[in-house]
């Protein structure tokens, strides 16, 4: 049996941000303690107004080995960016 506390990922919403951003991870025995620890470890310099924590083991991540298959096809499809299309001069309010 592992005697180490499980790992938690910490997400903080900053004063001006709208979304919670991943800031790091920490150990805690349960969710409540994880929030308290996150408060002490990651918001000491008034970084945040809201904290989310999630068990690291509950996060499903893409595998680095799949990188080519997942992301490379998009590299050759520049027409997916709006900047690919020239704007006619006459268009207003865009």
């Amino acid at each position: 049996m592992s005697t180490e506390w499980p790992l938690w990922e910490v997400f903080i919403r900053s004063q001006h941000g709208l979304a919670h951003k991943h800031v790091g991870s920490l150990h805690a025995s349960d969710a409540e303690m994880a929030v308290k620890n996150a408060r002490d470890v990651y918001t000491r310099r008034s970084e945040g107004v809201s904290i989310w924590v999630a068990r690291s083991s509950d996060i499903t991540a893409s595998s680095p080995g799949d990188r080519e298959a997942l992301f490379e096809p998009a590299n050759t499809k520049v027409y997916r960016h709006p900047t690919f299309y020239p704007m006619p001069d006459g268009v207003k309010h865009l």
């Binding site: 506390w5 920490l26 150990h27 620890n37 002490d40 470890v41 000491r44």
Partner: peptide, 8 residues
């Protein structure tokens, strides 16, 4: 006992 508690 753990880094987190040390800081807290």
């Amino acid at each position: 006992p753990v880094l987190e508690e040390d800081i807290a």
